[in-house]
């Protein structure tokens, strides 16, 4: 249990990442863009770009620990790519026959693209989880749904506290011989667990009443409420947000013009570099996805220069 908690802790570390210093709204627009566009573009090149940039960004964020995550994603990719053709028999180029059914090249490519898409999305979610800490998440919710945002913050405050209480109860019971050990029967263990939960519920609810008193005594529910904003939306956020919106706009425009077209029936064909919209689309998409990495690079260079001047 201890190691699990320390793991969660390290996930919550504040990363030396420039993009994370931007306003949560800027952050969320970027991630929504990367994830939603990633789901729409089922084109091998676009998927490839998304994976590559996603992996690079993940590496800058969690360094060596990214390997472990990537290994899992690789396994998933292989499974998805290989399994899809089993269910999907489109295309004319038969590679081999499996249980009397054709296993086609087109379906394999399609499976790989879809597997790649899933990996890319997981990769961007992994980055998201590094950048969007709970307070950023709550900040965004706080603008739209303040009561939900407050209760989220309250639950997050209670979780470590109640986990500790649960362990306290378990050990208190074991010290008077009232808890099962590793050797007791399955049913016994379940019964003991529910007794622990019942004690926890009584205890925690008493605390909940005090929490409510503390809220009311500090004026909760006496009238209009405001939300304290820890983050400011300054000029650099506006600049970045506008750049992102322009890049997303061009990418979507190109997609509408057919830049992400890939056909699998009867033969596999797709748009390629050189076609105007495809080239423009992939460049804008790539730059958009690279924004956080570029920001980190920019900041690193700036500090090199600063230091060398001193």
């Amino acid at each position: 249990m201890v190691s699990k908690q320390s793991e969660i802790k390290t996930m919550r570390e504040i990363y030396k990442d420039e993009f994370s210093t931007y306003n949560p709204v800027t952050n969320i627009v970027f991630f929504l863009g990367a994830i939603i566009l990633g789901m729409f573009f089922i084109h091998p090149v676009f998927v490839g770009v998304s994976i590559i940039v996603g992996v690079i960004y993940l590496f800058t964020l969690i360094k060596k620990r990214a390997f472990k995550e990537l290994l899992l994603m690789l396994v998933m990719f292989i499974v998805l790519a290989a399994i899809n053709p089993v269910f999907n028999r489109m295309g004319a180029t038969v590679l081999f026959w499996l249980f009397g059914k054709p296993y086609t090249f087109e379906a394999l490519i399609y499976g790989m693209t879809l597997g790649g898409m899933a990996v890319a999305i997981l990769c961007w979610f992994a980055c998201y989880n590094c950048i969007m800490t709970s307070d950023k998440f709550i900040y965004i919710f706080g603008r739209i749904i303040p009561s939900v945002s407050l209760i989220l913050s309250m639950i997050l405050r209670l979780i470590p506290n109640l986990s500790r209480k649960t362990k306290q109860i378990s050990s208190a019971r074991s010290c008077i011989g009232m808890a099962g050990s590793a050797s007791s029967s399955r049913m016994e263990k379940i019964r003991n667990g529910t007794l622990v939960l019942s004690t926890l519920t009584s205890w925690a609810l008493e605390g909940g009443i005090i929490m409510a008193d503390s809220m009311r005594s500090r004026g909760y529910g006496t009238g209009k409420r405001t939300t304290f904003a820890k983050y400011r939306f300054d000029k650099r956020n506006w600049v970045l947000l506008i750049i992102m919106v322009i890049l997303i706009g061009i990418t979507i425009f190109c997609a509408v013009k057919g830049s992400t077209k890939a056909e699998y029936v009867p033969y596999f064909t797709m748009t390629w570099f050189g076609e105007f919209y495809m080239t423009l689309g992939i460049v804008c998409y790539g730059i958009f996805l690279l924004i956080p990495v570029l920001l980190t690079i920019k900041e690193t260079i700036k500090w090199r220069i600063f230091r060398s001047k001193i």
């Binding site: 209760i151 209670l158 109640l162 649960t166």
Partner: peptide
């Protein structure tokens, strides 16, 4: 709000009681 928060938190961590 407080009671719902407490009970929800218990639901989330209920797993720990069955370590």
């Amino acid at each position: 709000l407080a009671i719902l928060a407490v009970l929800t938190a218990i639901a989330v961590i209920s797993r720990i009681a069955f370590i």
